[in-house]
Design a protein around this nucleic acid. Structure first.
Lengths: 203, 203
DNA sequence: TTGACAGATGACTGATGGGTCAGTAAAATG
DNA sequence: CATTTTACTGACCCATCAGTCATCTGTCAA
């Protein structure tokens, strides 16, 4: 078995996976999770359904692949961010900025993974690595903020949940995020609310 | 056609609907939305599947019935609350209190309607009355608060989304809500964060 | 050129689940 | 009691889909 052939084979396999990945995202974007069938993915990718099963053992595995391919880079970014030694508030601001950027660059996927619980859970139940680690990292930031004395004391996991809920609430409205100024606006809204609330003066 | 008979007939029909409703909630609680099949509902209710279709034209209609039966009283309460003439902050506090109470008393249903987007959307897409009106009423409260000068100015709908996201974030963690003190704790957490944020001192 | 094999194919299978309807039982009616 | 009307039943139908497999095809070594 010649070496070159093996390499080319792997490259071809990678390209096929990539093509199927893109078809999957397209189908998800057009038909939602409920309407994502293997037949549709195959048709969109321009291959036979049987071929899908050469590259992915099951539908679930395909979805996990999509999940990882999209969210792993994000997770990596966020982990680095959490690990850095800087004030919690700055970390939080950056966290939100990174998330918004990622959402802006993966609108279709996030429309599903962020909003559609069906997809979210389907995936999360099997692969809890990236997203749950991300949530833990988030809690870590809040814990740090409490240590610094800048955040009220409380349950950091609840704080993380509230922060994510806040994001979700706003992102569900599908705000325009393409331009940096637009992202900055949303960033300001979410972070401002989380940090200082919506009341004008102090009570 | 005797009058009494007609009345009794209606009463019986009501009881059947009630029985099917309860069976549906039980099935939903046990199997989730994805696992709620008409066969299961029929078996749980102790009737034949065909009979379900005498009382509800379709699965969707049955789900809508469940939805209305559970959420209509809540919606009515909240509407009255919005209409009252009191400071926005008090309205908001009461709003949250009413919601928490309702969630506490309908844990199973809320586990689905509040958290499971599949169910939520399935229903919301056809019947947007109660929930969307509720969201509008919420926005109304924020608008009022801005007029009073107590809330920062901004988009009241976004404020409503953030408030709901905050609630959802916390409620997804399925906090204990059975006892009033527990509800009060959650109430304090959510409202405190929304109003004043999580930062200890002013910047 | 040919044999062999990896890779591609799409008709097929089996399971699921919403909805139907011909047949049956029960109740109302006269 | 006979007849008609109404309610109930569950076997059945059909569409959908994940996953399979016998068959075909293009490529490459000998």
């Amino acid at each position: 078995m010649p070496k070159l052939t093996a390499i080319r084979k792997q490259a071809l396999e990678g390209m096929m996976k990539e093509a199927i990945f893109e078809a999957t995202v397209a189908v998800l974007a057009e038909h939602g999770v409920g309407g994502m069938t293997m037949d549709r993915v195959a048709a969109t990718a321009g291959v036979a359904k049987g071929s899908l099963y050469r590259y992915f053992r099951s539908k679930r595995e395909l979805l996990e692949f999509v999940h990882e391919k999209v969210l792993d880079p994000l997770a990596r970014n966020l982990e680095a961010l959490v690990a850095a030694s800087r004030p919690a508030v700055e970390k939080l601001a950056d966290h939100l900025r990174v998330v918004l950027e990622h959402v802006a660059q993966n609108v279709q996927v996030h429309k599903l993974l962020f909003q559609d619980d069906a997809a979210y859970r389907l995936i999360r139940s099997s692969d809890r690595r990236s997203l749950e680690r991300a949530a833990q990292g988030l809690a870590e930031i809040f814990r740090q903020g409490m240590d610094e004395g800048i955040f009220r004391s409380g349950n950091p996991n609840q704080f993380a949940s509230m922060y994510l809920g806040l994001c979700r609430g706003i992102l569900e409205g599908q705000p325009e995020l393409a331009r940096p100024e637009q992202r900055e606006e949303v960033h300001h809204l979410i972070l401002g609310t989380l940090l200082h609330g919506i009341v004008t003066e102090q009570v």
